[in-house]
């Protein structure tokens, strides 16, 4: 490019920089997905890493991918703070949402286990006032 076309040259420079950022994000997303699938296969073949650890890794990698999609593809990282906060603060409700509901599901499972037919259960003592009533 000749020096007389400085404005155009500047535009091209910007053009290259943001296209580069797009492809970099693409490679990050692709690599993380490949790592996830690779770990899943490793677990299928060898049983390593253990399932609980593996699930933890999957969740962290998923949030990592989500961050890049929202920050770079949806451009949220480059918006002003007001916009970022108005979007992200309500989504923080999910933290409570997930913990509360999964804990609820887990306690239901434990109750159903204890009450299922044939399950070893503790004898429930009849309340004392029941006899007094008769």
């Amino acid at each position: 490019m000749e020096h007389t076309h400085t404005a155009e040259g500047h535009e091209h420079g910007q053009h290259d920089a943001s296209t580069k950022a797009i492809w970099k994000t693409f490679w990050i997303l692709l690599c993380v997905t490949i790592v996830e699938v690779g770990l899943a296969f490793l677990h299928l073949e060898t049983g390593v890493p253990p399932k609980l650890l593996l699930n933890g890794i999957f969740i962290i990698l998923t949030i990592f991918k989500a961050f890049f999609i929202v920050a770079e593809f949806m451009h949220l990282r480059h918006e002003i703070k007001n916009l970022i906060m108005t979007i992200l603060i309500p989504l923080a409700l999910f933290v409570w949402f997930i913990i509360a509901f999964l804990a609820d599901g887990d306690s239901w499972k434990n109750m159903r286990k204890d009450l299922s037919p044939g399950a070893a259960r503790q004898e429930v003592k009849a309340p004392a006032h029941e006899e007094a009533h008769h």
């Binding site: 599901g105 239901w108 499972k109």
Partner: peptide, 9 residues
């Protein structure tokens, strides 16, 4: 999350 709850259940 409802999927997760049922799965945990």
């Amino acid at each position: 999350i409802s999927y997760g709850t049922i799965r945990f259940m």
